[in-house]
Design a protein around this nucleic acid. Structure first.
Lengths: 245, 245
DNA sequence: CGACGCTTTGACACAACTCAACAACCGTGG
DNA sequence: CCACGGTTGTTGAGTTGTGTCAAAGCGTCG
């Protein structure tokens, strides 16, 4: 098992403890790690795809482009996240997926994934659980876009990101690296980069959160959570008992 | 098999043809149909739940409430839709679910559902596929809230609803019954009811679409699609080959 | 040093919201 | 049958949050 493949195992273990056999199978079924350059598009909308991506390191985003040239970013998969499960079921992708920084990942081909799901129902359960969590996050995102103001949405976003990164050891309670620029943030939060800038300034001036040279610092977690009406995505939920299915 | 339970079968059959045995099992595993009054809350946020709902007739909505009193409607499940699959995995619901009109549905308990998934992998595949389609629709919704104007979003909404209802025979190309009032539409589309009213007026004045006494009439499907940049959710995709998993 | 990508700021425009009425509709009971 | 209240739809006037356009500042890298 590659050390670098641990993020996935860490995340799945959060849902349910995997045996050594399951863990080593999980490591074995993955391709060798691949590294691509920032900007590389790994999946474009409507592309036929027969594999999933497991992020090991780096930043990427899944998104949808609109005919008027704007784009909506759906998600920023972090290390340990799996991209393309739904696409596998659909056969063709309903979103694009590209690297924002140099990106290291492995892949699993559909047949091997399906075989694994047949042979290791507990692993299948973990993947389903993980997919369900991703879906829950997408719904939070949806609610934010529909009903939260720009500043609430932004605060909420950085809090959620923090929690996801903590899960794989890439953030502390108060800070984490985050190379997302204001154009990218704008596309994720349904705003313009100009307005994101104003919002970040306000958060900074209110001493709640600051973003400087790729580093997010949460200065006042309590007040920030209050502003965002933030509820933890993961911690509020009972840990899964991964029975078959 | 109850005739009234056909909507689910119709929808799953759209994904992959089920055998007679599968169809009758699917009918058998469901509870007797239940009817509840409009307004009844079937699932509230954070509720523990151990069953899924299969809508047979009537209108309902899943939503999230925000502490400031506003709400964001996630989805309007239509007959044949299944509510609560993700909740089953999470053990507690991350959204509320309530009836908007008198509502007829069946339920499937978690253990029986899991048993069915073990015994009939093709049914499991259909449910997963169906869940994936719901997720894809949620993503469309997310994109709309983030990047589309009020009128585009509204047009898009009615087009998508039309297609979903057509799938179960509840709409023609040009019209369908839809008892959603403007408050409800507003909560779904991330707008105020007042603004929805103005948007509907504009759609009416431009002879694209009109909503009168619970009836949606699509007057100019082509222009409406152009306005909304609408792409079919279901038709664009290859029909599934439902192999196990 | 200049070029480029990203951030920051200002002035202005506009889409959508708020508040406040009023009108239409509908079922209910007198 | 009409009067009534509640719900839903409609409209106007004014406000505000966010977008648009334009330009300048700042780092970094070649």
């Amino acid at each position: 098992m590659h050390i670098s493949q641990n993020a996935l195992a860490v995340k799945l273990n959060f849902f349910s403890t995997l045996t050594n056999e399951e863990q080593s199978y999980l490591a074995m079924v993955q391709s060798e790690p691949v590294t691509v350059k920032a900007g590389k598009e790994l999946l474009h909308e409507r592309q036929y795809s027969h594999k999933v991506f497991i992020v090991l390191a780096g930043w990427s985003n899944s998104y949808k482009d609109l005919p008027d040239g704007s784009r909506q970013i759906i998600n920023f998969p972090v290390p340990g996240d799996c991209v393309g499960l739904r696409t596998l079921l659909m056969h063709t992708s309903d979103h694009g997926y590209s690297a924002l920084t140099d990106l290291k990942f492995t892949t699993i081909d559909a047949p091997r994934l399906m075989q694994m799901f047949d042979d290791f129902p507990r692993i299948r359960a973990c993947f389903l659980w993980s997919g369900a969590r991703d879906e829950a996050m997408a719904l939070d995102h949806l609610v934010g876009l529909g009903r939260r103001s720009a500043i609430e949405r932004t605060a909420h976003f950085f809090l959620e990101l923090s929690e996801r990164l903590q899960l794989v050891g890439l953030a502390t309670e108060t800070q984490y690296r985050c190379p997302l620029n204001q154009y990218v943030l704008a596309d994720a939060l349904g705003l313009t980069s100009i307005h994101i800038n104003r919002v970040l300034r306000e958060l900074r001036e209110r001493s709640l959160l600051s973003v400087r040279s790729g580093m997010v610092m949460i200065q006042d977690p309590h007040e920030l959570r209050k502003l965002a009406n933030y509820q933890s995505v993961t911690h509020q939920r009972t840990r899964a008992e991964a029975n078959a299915n």
